[in-house]
Nucleic acid binder design. Structure first.
Length: 549
RNA sequence: GUCCCGUUCGUCUAGCCCGGUCUAGGACACAGCCCUUUCAAGGCUGCAGCACGGGUUCGAAUCCCGUACGGGACGCCA
């Protein structure tokens, strides 16, 4: 096919008999019957089982995980997600059920015409995030988890969390806890799991033995290796298009270590089959692992899931994001005062774009806009500045109740919290927060800038005092202003402004001079929110007192 | 080294599959202006990019080939 194109010979389109043209390129042949391009290779029956073998034990029902393999804690909260969907009236995306659509393949080449249209309802969407608890959840992992989660939501599927802790040496429970905590903080709720591979060890061992018995693997000094067959492995990545690897570049890899623990390749494939994973969405660092795993799927007689690899997140120096680049842990961002909504929005746009100019997405909008087609192939650099911008955007538009929930611990840390702030003083507190919103970059900015309202003592910035309060005459004027404000019938934004401007007029000085001096007297700083906002929020009594310094 | 993949403003990206509508659009950052009592926020304007070389074509950011550069994988890590 490709040959004939290159040589410019006439070709007949197999999909449209009679249509002959040298301009038909392989990639275009299947254009008309769209279904064939959308048909994933992984549907039941599409694979080439070398030997049929059900991995499941006879007494197990589909999808069920033996109780002893399940986690103790009831960490999954599928119920809340179901509720979420119901309450948001989310119906299955109509497109979701027409089957999966591939992006254009590797330039000009496309093997999809070999796939015949199959009229079969698509299998349920089940995706998993499978971190290894050898470290905290970093932003790269979080982005992967987010895309998995988004895809599951979008297609009304199930999001599964699986802990890949087969490396006993390097895995730790603390790390697992940290990962769960980070995902919860980010709002990435899983419907199933967490499943622990360390509790399914026998399962993998059994499978490895099976493969040996059937000739797909062999013993090698206590370990079990997979026997890589000759030929080549080709698969269609939902993001990268067709990827082909010659088998002789793949060595006979280990399935079971000599300590009888499974390696990643074995456990991941066994579990993905067992858990009926329909779409494997993971980092692009797994692209070269995929052919090995496909070989395993074949040996186990299982059909393939759709593979979708995500471009990597790089540091500013364009190398893979690591500790060298500073904060990479999700929880480090929480500590920095980043709200989860902002991180999520930012992460969603790293390696994915909606195709429109929209940048700010609420949950529902993101859900609606997300699709595998918008994922780019090129690695992305993590841009702190843009994250900061997203955070500022969210700080200025988050619902008040939610913001207060994030803020309370910060006010406590700063020693500025008092319960009346969410009781008697709640209305006042809300105006304070609203005043600070457009100025806040991180959560900590709120207590920081609230101090002058909440703490009876204020600190004066010497430079500001020097600049605006040095003149004895200005102090005198502030005294006069204090008396003026004291006798105001009401103390509002309008009345204070009128009083200040009127007084400045009478004194024959610029209002600005009076305002600048007042700012320092009231706040101790030369930088603060609008002075009339400050006065009204501070209240008449305190304002008058501070003006009479 | 071998294999796989990628390459549009400094950064995130739209456009690429289906070549003309692209004097390449948006956002962050940066600069200037406006608003203004300071600082923000907001509004407006500006700066800046199709890696390179061939080819195909009347026409290429878009299709093809090559080069360079970058990334990933080559573990009894995941």
């Amino acid at each position: 096919m490709e040959r004939s194109f290159r040589s410019g010979k006439e070709t007949e389109c197999p999909q449209r008999p009679g249509l002959r043209s040298r301009f038909i390129r392989p990639g275009r042949l299947h254009q008309q019957p769209r279904e064939c391009a959308r048909q994933p290779p992984g549907l039941p029956g599409r694979s080439l089982p070398l030997r049929a073998w059900e991995i499941r034990r006879p007494d197990e029902r589909a999808l069920s995980i033996p109780e002893k393999f399940q986690s103790q804690g009831a960490c999954g909260n599928g119920e809340s997600d179901r509720k979420y969907r119901r309450s948001h009236g989310l119906s299955p995306d109509p497109a979701a059920h027409r089957g999966f659509r591939y992006r254009g393949g590797a330039r000009g080449r496309c093997g999809a015409q070999k796939i015949k249209p199959v009229n079969r309802p698509s299998s349920p969407v089940r995706v998993r995030f499978a971190p290894s608890p050898t470290g905290y959840l970093h932003v790269g992992g979080a982005r992967t988890a987010l895309f998995d989660w988004l895809f599951a939501r979008k297609r009304n599927g199930t999001f599964i969390l699986r802990i890949e802790d087969t490396d006993v040496e390097r895995s730790s429970e603390d790390m697992t806890r940290g990962i769960l905590e980070a995902m919860t903080w980010l709002g990435l709720h899983w419907d199933e799991g967490p499943y622990y591979q360390s509790k399914r060890l026998d399962f993998y061992r059994e499978t490895a033995q099976r493969l040996v018995k059937e000739g797909y693997a062999y013993q090698d000094e206590g370990a079990i290796r997979f026997r890589v067959p000759e030929g080549k492995v080709t698969y269609k990545d939902a993001v990268f298009g067709e990827i082909t690897v010659e088998s002789d570049t793949i060595e006979n890899f280990v399935l079971l270590r000599s300590d009888s623990n499974p390696t990643y390749h074995l456990s991941v494939v066994v579990d993905d089959i067992d858990m009926r994973i329909s779409h494997v969405i993971r980092g692009a660092d797994h692209i070269s692992n995929t052919p090995k795993q496909i070989l395993l799927y074949r040996a186990l007689g299982a059909s393939l899931p759709v593979f979708a690899h995500l471009p990597l997140i790089l540091g500013p120096d364009k190398t893979r994001l690591s500790k060298r680049h500073g904060a990479t842990s999700v929880m480090a961002y929480q500590e920095q005062g980043i709200v989860p909504e902002a991180l999520r929005n930012f992460l969603a746009l790293l390696g994915w774009a909606p195709g429109t100019d929209q940048e700010l997405f609420n949950d529902e909008e993101l859900n609606h806009a997300f699709s595998l087609q918008g994922i780019s192939k090129a690695n992305a650099v993590f841009n702190q500045d843009k994250l900061a911008w997203f955070n500022a955007q969210y700080l200025s538009r988050l619902e008040h109740e939610k913001l207060v929930r994030y803020l309370k611990p910060e006010f406590m840390k700063a020693g500025l919290w008092r319960d009346s702030l969410e009781k008697e003083e709640s209305a006042w507190f809300k105006s304070l927060i609203d005043l600070l919103r457009p100025r806040a970059k991180v959560l900590q900015d709120f207590p920081r800038q609230s101090r002058l309202f909440l703490d009876p003592n204020i600190e004066y910035d010497p430079a500001a005092v020097e600049k605006f309060l040095k003149d004895p005459k200005i102090k005198e004027n502030l005294q006069g202003l204090a008396s003026r404000l004291e006798s105001l019938p009401e103390f509002t934004l309008q009345s204070t402004e009128a009083a200040v401007r009127g007084f400045a007029d009478e004194l024959g000085i610029k209002a600005g001079a009076l305002i600048n001096a007042s700012r320092v007297a009231l706040t101790g700083q030369s930088v603060a929110p609008g002075i009339f906002d400050v006065m009204t929020l501070m209240g008449r009594e305190k304002t008058v007192a501070r003006l009479r310094i």
